[in-house]
Amino acid sequence: MEKFALHKGLVAPLDRANIDTDAIIPKQFLKSIKRSGFGVNLFDAWRFLDVGQPGVSINQRRPNPNFILNEPRYQGASILLARKNFGCGSSREHAPWALADYGFKAVIAPSFGEIFFNNSLKNGLLPIVLSGIEVDALFHDVLGFPGFQLIVDLENQRVVTETNGKSFNFQIDPFRKHCLLNGLDDIGLTLERVDEIKKFEEQHKLNQPWLFS
């Protein structure tokens, strides 16, 4: 995983609650056995007027001019602003893969689907929980000021507006923060505990032998 450095980027607003992972990346694209290449089909059913199929070039598609991410002013956006319960539903990690592949580094919302939240952290995509009022304020700013950018400062756990220096603090587990800042592989860290896992496993086997029969 890449280190999550201080990030400054253009913000795109997606003003909708309960955006599920089926909407983020529809099922026909889950047939891939790769981790990459999902960005072209991010929000496929909303972004395009034709029904997307795996392997079809983006040049042959008909973009939906009414979808916010297709507006010229949001091209190159790297921070997505959304409403509550973003990423609910299916556990597909293809959702954060698609968001990251498209170019997003962070998603800001009042709440997230839990599995999506975990999956994002493992892919260097930072899910940031701000209060409903703070998210409202950001929607107001991003709609009002073309080119609106935010600075995501993970080290200091805050989001800062570039224009007027407004700052919003956010919470994150110290362990997750450490992994993101240093680009650490979760599995490698857990494998440093091999002896403890083995010890637990031996005891577990004694306690519930039928689980190992």
Binding site: S91, E93, N118, N119, N123, D186, T190, R193, I197
Partner: peptide, 21 residues
């Protein structure tokens, strides 16, 4: 019993464990 993402599938394969809150 709960759902996990693919990175966690790999994590469980490799370590038989999950990091959880």
């Amino acid at each position: 019993a709960h759902g996990i993402g693919t990175s966690e599938v790999e994590h469980v394969l490799a370590t038989q464990c999950l990091v959880q809150k």
